[in-house]
Simulated scan of single mutants.
Amino acid sequence: MSDAIKTYDSMSELYASFGGKLEQDVGFTIHRNEELFPNFPVKSPLFRTRFYTVLILSEGRGRYLIDDRSYVTRGNIIYFTNPGHLKGFEVDETLKGYLITFSESFLKQYVRDDILDEFPFLIAEVVPPNYPDREVFQIFDNLGGMLLQEYQSDSVYKHQTIGCLMVVLLLKIKERFWKAYDPLTEAVTSSNITLTFQRNLEAHFRDLLTGKCDRLLQVQDYAQAQYLHPNYFSTVIKYKTGKSVNSWIAEKTIAEAKAMLARSSQSVQEIAARLGFKDAGHFSRFFKKHTELSPLSFRQRITSE
């Protein structure tokens, strides 16, 4: 079933799947919801995106799906969703408000490189929708209006101005919604992330040892397997297990290497290749770093014992 789920790189690509056309550049869009989906009811297929979405909705009714959760869509609501999650939506009556999409690269280009440190919810799992009172909602609605005005302008400072306004929007999200939500302690899937990682780690080494794979997977590979940002994935694993992802990978690699050195007659070069190392010298340095012995010294000690 997952093979049939489309992943979209941009809002324009997603909208094209509905038969529409959007102009988009530099990883940012903002449009009025009533212009995007003037006809209803609308029910989307399940999909994934590689961009962030902020929905500022003043009126409307429908439903929004994120992974295995379903949220009611109504007036005075603010959604924030991250890349990678399985999504879908239903529109029962005209939605009024703003739909904002942007990429991580846009923020890093027009705000700053360490943007994820300032706004940790950009790498979290799922931030629940917020239903603020009218006064608070109006702040976000006004920001949506300013972003749209700048997006439609011909200013030579257009993208820089949008970047500044996005900082204000993200600060307001952080101020109003984020304090009460800690994804490490409240997200029901955080334990499943750890369990899935451990299973994926075991499965990967089985593939390595049976010749089905010839590359040692890294942090970003395991994060991508669960459609998570590598920073958030690493934080969850460290929080839940007390060990970093790299420590898990290293310990598993050393354990398998020791077993092969002790129980097989394969050369160090053959063992290195089997474990996904392209260079035997790299494998030897890695092994010595973690055991204080070279692979040959370890094998000789085991043999003598």
Rank of each mutant, 00 (worst) to 15 (best):
M1E: 08
S2C: 00
D9N: 13
D9K: 12
M11K: 08
M11P: 03
L14P: 00
E23R: 13
G27H: 02
F28N: 05
T29Q: 09
R32E: 03
R32W: 03
P38W: 12
P38K: 10
N39Y: 13
P41M: 07
V42A: 01
Y52W: 10
Y52R: 03
T53S: 12
V54H: 01
L55C: 04
I56V: 13
R61C: 06
R63K: 15
L65V: 11
I66V: 15
Y71R: 02
G75Y: 02
I78L: 15
T81D: 13
P83V: 06
G84A: 01
H85E: 11
F89Y: 15
V91P: 00
D92R: 14
K96V: 13
Y98L: 07
L99W: 14
L99N: 11
T101V: 05
F102G: 04
S105H: 11
L107A: 09
Y110L: 03
V111T: 10
V111R: 07
R112I: 06
D114F: 03
E118K: 12
F119I: 05
L122G: 00
A124V: 04
A124Y: 14
A124Q: 13
P129K: 02
D133N: 14
R134Y: 07
Q138W: 06
D141R: 08
N142F: 05
L147G: 00
Q149T: 11
S155W: 09
K158N: 01
K158T: 03
Q160K: 12
C164W: 07
L165A: 01
L165D: 00
M166G: 00
F177E: 02
F177L: 04
F177M: 03
W178S: 06
Y181V: 05
D182E: 11
P183N: 04
L184A: 02
E186R: 11
V188S: 14
T189S: 13
S190N: 12
I193H: 10
L195M: 11
T196M: 09
F197D: 02
R199V: 08
N200K: 12
L201F: 11
E202W: 05
F205A: 00
R206Q: 10
L208F: 04
G211E: 07
R215G: 01
Q218E: 11
Q220W: 05
Q220A: 08
D221H: 15
Y222N: 01
P230L: 04
F233V: 00
T235A: 12
V236W: 02
Y239Q: 05
Y239N: 04
T241R: 08
T241W: 11
S247I: 07
S247R: 15
I249L: 13
A255F: 10
E256K: 10
A259L: 08
M260E: 15
A262R: 13
R263H: 13
E270H: 06
A272V: 03
A272E: 01
R274M: 04
G281A: 07
H282S: 15
F283W: 10
F286S: 01
F287Y: 05
K288P: 03
K289G: 10
H290Y: 15
T291R: 09
E292V: 07
L296V: 07
S297L: 07
I302S: 06
T303H: 11
